[in-house]
Nucleic acid binder design. Structure first.
Lengths: 134, 134
DNA sequence: CGTATGAGTTACGTCAACGTAAATTCCCAT
DNA sequence: ATGGGAATTTACGTTGACGTAACTCATACG
């Protein structure tokens, strides 16, 4: 039993730096499943784990729908055996996409660095010009 | 002189697999500057180079506005000395963002791979179960 | 008991990056 | 001359991921 206490929407917002609107939106899209104590939402440890993954997924440019797929894979404790193979394929595809993207990104970084060495030289020569003008 | 012949919008679309709408949109957003022969647009080698960079930028999840900034850096032959330093900063920021993203991506790939080994085991055990059932 | 505070619902607004449809306009071959 | 194919302009439509009112409901507090 680590820390299974539930959190209010405000605590979640503060903890993850998101708005209430966002959390309700994610619930509507079935990315989160806070329990309903009467009127209020209570976010469990599971919701926190999922939100963490959602936010990371977003930083990689995944759509919420894609993230939902991955979350289903992550949190598939059992059953859905039929779906599993299919989801597994999706994950494989996603994985190779990600690797390709990483490689392109690496290349782009190198190119951009190269381009910036350019800028350095220009700035340096500008500096010279400026000094000469004084 | 390599290949400086201009291209029509259709040739561009075929060459880069984009729609005319996209090219006109990019022109409106000042990402491309085809010359206007009367009514028609004629795309130069410069436009082709820029479009190539635009499409690559998009694959990295940059917005068109961000791409426009980077293109300005790329194609800044001279002048705009004042702006250069600022744009240089933007590029630096962008670069560190990209590196951070690459690192996160690398980590996520590893985690996803790990998760998938999970799936493999599940599939394997399911296979056993299936065989046993025959 | 009144009210201020926080959560909730409903529903319209927004921004990016185009898609799509309608109405010209231009060029050319029959 | 004319009909057919491109290309153009204008402008409204679309999708994703929320933002932003407007209004209601519940409750803790002085």
């Amino acid at each position: 039993m680590t820390d299974d206490r539930t959190m209010t929407i405000r605590e979640m917002c503060d903890a993850f730096d998101v708005t209430p609107r966002t959390l309700r939106f994610y619930e509507a899209k079935e990315l989160l499943f806070p329990i309903r104590e009467g009127q209020k939402r209570l976010f469990t440890k599971r919701d926190r784990a999922r939100l963490k993954l959602i936010l990371r997924g977003k930083r990689f440019g995944f759509s919420l729908e894609e993230i939902r797929q991955l979350l289903d894979l992550y949190h598939m404790g059992d059953q859905q055996q039929t779906q599993l193979a299919r989801t597994y394929e999706i994950a494989q595809q996603r994985l190779s996409d990600m690797e390709a993207q990483r490689d392109e990104l690496t290349q782009a970084i190198d190119e951009l660095k190269e381009q910036m060495r350019w800028g350095e030289k220009m700035l340096a020569s500008m500096d010279q010009t400026k000094k000469a003008a004084e």
